[in-house]
């Protein structure tokens, strides 16, 4: 560091979504705070700041971590990815398209964290089973969706990443077909 930095303050160069930015912030601030408050990347949300809800999940070196429990200074030298970095240009990531189309984002507040955890999972295993997806996302709470549309969306995105053009079953959007005896009645 060339210029004197006041005590309790850190200056760090963070690589977020492939872009380097040098920022000064209180040393005790977490990556969550620095992303939102210094870098203006408010896509990363928070729900408890104690590591209990998964809302603030971001990727560090490709692995999902809770940004509320990582000091920003400790992220220096690592690749940080947030929801803002998911799309390529104006093109949505298959996860983003699937979440938007299926309504897997209702209020949308847990969505960034779940998208990032899903991205890490699919990067490792795009053909992840429903059970594997549920386990991988089990640290991310959602209060709106009942998780069904999220599971369907991650599966759909996984298929897309595998090169398959296979949208979810009609049942996902229209509900189950009525049993025959009910239709007759």
């Amino acid at each position: 560091m060339s210029s004197p930095v006041p005590p309790g303050t850190s200056v760090a160069t963070l690589r977020v979504n492939g872009e380097e930015r040098t920022v000064a912030f209180p040393t005790h601030h977490t990556l969550l705070e620095v992303l939102r408050e210094e870098l203006g990347l408010t896509g990363t949300k928070h729900g408890c700041e104690l590591g209990e809800c998964g809302t603030c999940t971001v990727l560090v070196d490709g692995k999902p971590v809770l940004s509320c429990l990582v000091l920003a200074v400790e992220a220096e030298g690592h690749a940080v990815e947030t929801v803002e970095g998911l799309q390529q240009g104006n093109q949505l990531h298959p996860l983003q398209s699937a979440f938007a189309d299926l309504g897997a984002a209702q209020c949308g507040y847990c969505t960034p964290g779940i998208l990032m955890a899903s991205k890490a999972l699919l990067a490792e295993n795009p053909a992840a089973s429903r059970e594997q997806i549920a386990v991988a996302l089990s640290g991310n709470l959602c209060r709106c969706t009942g998780y069904q549309k999220i599971l369907e969306a991650v599966e759909w995105a996984g298929r897309t990443l595998c090169g398959e053009n296979a949208p979810p079953a009609r049942e996902c959007s229209f509900g189950a077909p009525l049993p025959e005896e009910v239709q007759r009645g």
Partner: peptide
């Protein structure tokens, strides 16, 4: 805890 927390 959860898989995400196990990464930390």
């Amino acid at each position: 805890s959860s898989p995400v927390l196990q990464n930390m």
